[in-house]
Design a protein around this nucleic acid. Structure first.
Length: 447
RNA sequence: GGUCCGGUGGCAGAGUGGUGAUGUAGCGGACUGCAAAUCCGCGUAUGUGGGUUCGAUUCCCGCCCGGACCUCCA
């Protein structure tokens, strides 16, 4: 087995991954705030985690993967009010949509998917610990984390606390001792979700939930914590501060992974630019597998430029891969090609791994059955190429009608009436069917 | 303004202190009645100016360009 190396945001270096407990590798990723449909940028983070966990499962006997759901948040409250529905209805529906989208993309479910609202008790316990140890203070109905009491604050995101203070561009709430102090607990109004606490009825701040849930399911120290790099600051910086102060001497996350953002047509995805895509919108027009391949075609730490052309290209690439697989019978348990695993072990180099897939496809098309089996096995680790090739090429089309047209065309060709044969082929193409004449007859697929 | 990340062929996108992957697009060819698929061949790239080095795309500095973040807040 090759040695896995990962790039740690804290040290800004790529280093060999050494699990705390090789018998149980523990991973935490920040999941969605459930107020709206997932977009392709959200998907990228979920996919990065998915590849990491799939690879870890290939390398280690047991992996515990926790990905939370944030179901208490101001954006949720606002959206529910806007739509005139109860908060619980909004979050329930959004979670169901989220799960459906991820399933379509072959993103495997986490082992634990804790919801913030189910863990407010743990959060209150942690906040109380922080207050007791002097790292947090209550003021004006809020409880705030005192940044000045954590010497290592800023280390993860590479920020100098003094500069953060000087650069504060937002008016600072009067109850804060320091502009950098952040909310652990805040008061709630009667209409909004709230829980009784030593500081009155209120609701948790954003960061505290991940600290509490990671601790509950993974312990004081665990191996990997990840998310989009927009979460690096303040979310992860604050989470780290809370956890390291709440459980002094613990390591919290040993390695931090952050995926880069996604651009659409070279620009930031935004609703005002009209280039904002939900996962669902893309899936209406393209196979989920093409979207998955496209997103894996860029290394997770590089900015990914999403285009429609790229999506079409990914689909054509899959056509070729499925052609290669079609030539060799499924071989369950086929070993993963070493070059493929090596690429993934180099900080999850999915583009490099896909390049190996191309080489395997070339060999498989030339008749190498082992390469075909290796291609399917490697594709499986990436969550690709698991469909039946005939489904990939022909699903959703009327096979009987196509076969009849092919028979008619064959008759015309035998009679050397090529004008008629070509007309039939053109009609099929207009219906989205491409014909391929080979030595063993004519086969067909969707365009 | 501050901090951080990045700029590779038409496009997408890796690796690397010593002949620059892979895909796609383009061109030529084989195969085909013609296509499609497949196969063979060809061409084009390291933003810019310095520095270190025998040698820099890779390491260092400046500049230009792109992106993220700048704390529950619009």
């Amino acid at each position: 087995m090759p040695q896995l190396a990962l790039h740690d945001s804290l040290t800004r270096r790529t280093a060999p991954f050494v699990p705390l407990d090789p018998a149980n590798v523990r991973v935490y990723y920040c999941g969605p705030t459930v107020y709206d449909l997932a977009h392709i940028g959200n998907l990228r983070a979920m996919l990065s985690a998915d590849i990491l966990v799939r690879l870890l499962r290939a390398l280690y006997p047991t992996v515990t993967f926790v990905r939370n759901i944030t179901d208490v948040d101001d954006k949720i409250n606002a959206r529910a009010a806007e739509r005139g529905i109860p908060i619980a209805e909004l979050t329930k529906g959004t979670i169901a949509d989220f799960h459906a989208d991820l399933k379509a993309l072959s993103v495997l479910p986490p082992d634990k998917e804790p919801r913030a609202t189910d863990h407010v008790g743990e959060m209150i316990v942690l906040i109380a610990r922080l207050v007791q140890s002097g790292h947090a203070y209550a003021a004006d109905g809020h409880v705030l984390f005192q940044v000045a009491h954590f010497a290592d604050y800023g280390a993860l995101s590479g920020r100098d606390p003094d500069e953060l203070r000087a650069g504060a561009r937002v008016e600072v709430a009067g109850y804060k001792r320091d502009p950098g102090d952040f909310v652990l607990w805040k008061p709630s109004t009667p209409e909004l979700p709230g829980w009784e606490s030593p500081w009155g009825r209120g609701r948790p701040g954003w960061h505290i939930e991940c600290s509490a849930m990671a601790h509950r399911y993974l312990g004081e120290s665990f191996d990997i914590h990840g998310g989009g790099d927009d979460l690096l600051f303040p979310h992860h910086e604050n989470e780290r501060a809370q956890s390291l102060c709440g459980w002094p001497g613990s390591g919290f996350a040993r390695i931090w992974l952050h995926n880069a953002m996604l651009l659409v047509d070279g620009e930031k995805m935004s609703k005002s630019l009209g280039n904002f895509y939900t996962v669902r919108e893309i899936l209406e027009e393209h196979p989920a597998e093409a979207l998955r391949l496209l997103l894996l075609g860029t290394h997770y730490r590089s900015v990914l430029n999403f285009t429609r052309e790229g999506l079409a290209e990914a689909r054509r690439t899959l056509d070729r891969f499925y052609r290669a697989i079609e030539r060799s019978a499924p071989a369950p348990g086929a070993p993963l090609p070493p070059a493929f695993l090596d690429a993934l072990c180099q900080d999850l180099n999915t583009p490099g791994a896909i390049a190996v897939l191309h080489r395997l496809a070339e060999a498989a098309l030339a008749g190498d059955r082992a390469a075909g089996a290796g291609l399917r096995a490697a594709g499986g680790l990436l969550g690709l190429l698991q469909a039946d090739p005939s489904d990939w090429f022909q699903a959703g089309l009327d096979a009987v009608a196509v076969e009849q047209a092919i028979a008619a065309r064959l008759a015309a060709r035998k009679a050397r009436d090529f004008a008629r044969a070509d007309a039939i082929r053109a009609e099929l193409l207009a219906d989205g069917v491409v014909l391929e004449d080979g030595p063993s007859g004519t086969s067909w697929r969707r365009a």
